[in-house]
């Protein structure tokens, strides 16, 4: 029984961690990614604020969602952004998505014995998409730039001992593909098509298995399930996931912030018509980043 005396030694303990609730989620499409998170920050049963962003634009093709201990999360994002800025200064271009993913792994593992108590989901556009022969109008509209993913190739024909080189060049354009990387607090990571994390992970992930991966669903005879869903369908699933999580989890709610990363060259069909959408891209002629905000229940 504590009595204030120094007769018996007392053990005190400082816990450097806390949990700040909330949930994040990312889904990769064929040539886009959606990265979303709610905006409530809480501790125990108290809502600290109704607007604390958990999703951050890193570059014009990478968006990072962080969830767990908010102080660690904010510090981690700050340090990732700093490393990306250094990379930009050194290489005069943005770091590719897969390189950001590996960077995040090493940064997390560096803290293996005093971890950032944070679950990370990185979404964006990967440079591994299909090559498409461009139309002449495309090459006029988007002339090749040293930073762009446009490749000039020479056409060659072998005719016996001779090699004929065509006197025209053709333009090949690499379309980026949607990518999602998910991490654990000490840096284990993998590329996936979709991932939920945070307080309502257990509510959302099985729903996504069903709706994104079509788990436990049989395709009609002679047909197969699509490998990637269209953007409008993905946005509907994201909104449904968060309204459901808000309904059944006390730490989820207040607001929803959805980032959409569109691969360069993809027409933003249907995106302009979404109410309140905001473009946050910094450069022209690059992949594009948009934010969509929605209200969630506040109780």
């Amino acid at each position: 029984m504590p009595d204030g005396s120094f007769a018996h030694p007392q053990q005190r303990h400082f816990n450097p961690y806390t949990e700040n609730g909330g949930t994040i989620l990312a889904i990769a499409g064929a040539d886009f990614s959606v990265i979303a998170g709610d905006t409530r920050q809480s501790e125990g049963y108290s809502i600290q604020t109704r607007y604390a962003p958990k999703v951050f634009r890193l570059t014009d093709r990478a968006v990072l969602a962080v969830n767990g201990f908010a102080a660690d999360g904010n510090m981690f994002v700050k340090k990732v952004k700093q490393r990306l800025e250094w990379y930009r200064h050194a290489h005069a271009k943005d770091m590719p998505l897969r390189a950001i993913a590996r960077l995040i792994q090493t940064m997390l593992y560096a803290q293996r014995f005093f971890p950032y108590y944070v679950y990370n989901i990185l979404g964006g556009i990967e440079e591994d998409g299909k090559y498409h022969t461009s139309l002449p109008s495309y090459s006029t509209a988007f002339p090749p730039h040293p930073l762009s993913r446009v490749h000039w190739i020479k056409r060659e024909w072998k005719c016996g001992p001779k090699v004929l080189v065509a006197n025209t060049f053709r333009l090949l354009v690499q379309l980026g593909s949607g990518a999602v990387y998910s991490f654990d607090p000490v840096g284990s990571y993998e590329r996936e098509a979709c991932r939920a994390a945070g307080a309502a992970q257990s509510l959302v992930q099985p729903f996504l298995d069903n709706q994104i991966y079509f788990k436990n669903q049989t395709a009609p005879a002679g047909q197969s399930h699509p490998t990637h869903l269209p953007l409008q369908d993905v946005l509907s699933i994201v909104i449904d996931s968060f309204t459901s999580a808000t309904e059944r989890h006390i730490e989820v709610g207040d607001g929803l912030e959805m980032y959409v990363v569109l691969a360069k060259g993809r027409s933003p069909q249907g995106l302009e018509s979404i109410a309140g959408i905001q473009e946050v891209t910094t450069k022209s002629d690059s992949d594009r980043v948009f934010v969509i905000r929605r209200e969630l229940k506040k109780d």
Partner: peptide, 8 residues
């Protein structure tokens, strides 16, 4: 998990 999927 049942709550999450059922709610959806």
């Amino acid at each position: 998990k049942l709550f999450g999927v059922a709610e959806g």
